[in-house]
Amino acid sequence: MRSDQPRASWPLKLAAFAVIAFLNFPVLVIFLYAFTTEEAAFTFPPPGLTTTWFGVLFQREDFWRALATSLQVAAIATLVAMALGTLLALALSRTKFFGKEMISLLVLLPIALPGIVTGIALRSSINQYGIPFSMWTIIIGHATFCVVTVYNNAVARLRRSSPSMNEASMDLGATALQTFRYIILPTMATALLAGGLLAFALSFDEIIVTNFTAGPQQQTLPIWIYNQLPRPRDRPVTNVAAIFTILITLPALLVAYRLTRGGDEQA
């Protein structure tokens, strides 16, 4: 904070701290009880601290399978979303037609609607077409709601860049393909990367839509954690797995934030 700015009054500060604590307290609990020596109950303060639960988790083959599935789903869904979101943003930036604003809303819908609605809709569609449930159906489901983060970032960047830039490139002898490679892609790169990272984070910890689109064999990390909860003996292991989820998604979110900071891009 700069010293020449007026300082907030103390009740306001107190309220701010209270909100931050309220939002983040559950996360602290997870970190704390990943190290507790108790197996089942969470007493406060923890009777002792240990790192054995990390070892226990690393022995679990089903954990590694779930993590691998989640990483694959998130990676492929992100790539699909990046391709679709970029193309849609580029296509819409060049034309004007009645109802153009509606398209942005349609792209937003899969994530704006409750996950349960999106999930049911996807499940019945997949059934309708007789597609067997597999990792690919999860990917399709995730891609539908990941497109919006890429699309929004791409649209915001396109809006800021000069429309005559592409014309300048063509004017200087570049074909449409060369213009895409040398001008459009580089100027949009950071926005696309940010959108992609957000999409990745969004997909990695998604559980509701995943439940509706997964086959019986597929377990993503969030589903694995959810299934662990009723097992009281391994409770700290779940917390360790949750820490892994945070360690994977948080850097993605931070980098995405840094890439778009100072601009008018939005998630």
Binding site: S162, M165, E167, A168, D171, G173, T175
Partner: peptide, 16 residues
């Protein structure tokens, strides 16, 4: 445009 022996200085310069 890319095959015309003509170049343009744009109003907003359009530098990359």
């Amino acid at each position: 445009p890319y095959e015309r022996d003509v170049n343009t200085v744009f109003q907003d310069y359009a530098l990359f």
